[in-house]
């Protein structure tokens, strides 16, 4: 097998991807980068599913299909919202629009 690694290494990979995604979501102020970050988080979960599925049974892999589909839908929805937001405010930085608060 090409990728010979034990489960801890794989978990390290997915946790790293999760951490990078969280880092991106919290530090990037532009909506497109935030979308990238969201996709990374969901991919981290997907990686987990695939790895455990390879060790256990086929259910995880099938759930990963659905997750990919959901993530794609989420990306589409996100982009729709982002575009509407941009068209209205001329701005891709949501932190600047803070009318709803307190």
């Amino acid at each position: 097998m090409l990728l010979e690694a034990d489960v801890h290494a794989y978990l390290f990979l997915s946790f790293s991807l999760l951490a990078v995604g969280v880092y991106g979501l919290l530090s990037r102020r532009s909506v497109i980068r935030m979308l990238f970050a969201v996709e990374m988080i969901i991919n981290a979960a997907n990686l987990n599913l695939a790895i455990f599925s390879a060790q256990r049974n086929v259910d995880g892999e099938i759930f990963a299909f659905f997750t990919i589909g959901l993530a794609a839908l989420e990306a589409a929805v996100g982009l729709a919202i982002v575009i509407v937001f941009y068209k209205r405010f001329g701005e891709v930085i949501p932190s600047k629009i803070r009318n709803l608060r307190w």
Binding site: F15, L18, A19, V20, V22, Y23, L26, S27
Partner: peptide
């Protein structure tokens, strides 16, 4: 963000 994500990792 760095602190939080590193903590998470």
């Amino acid at each position: 963000a760095i602190v939080l994500s590193l903590l998470l990792l």
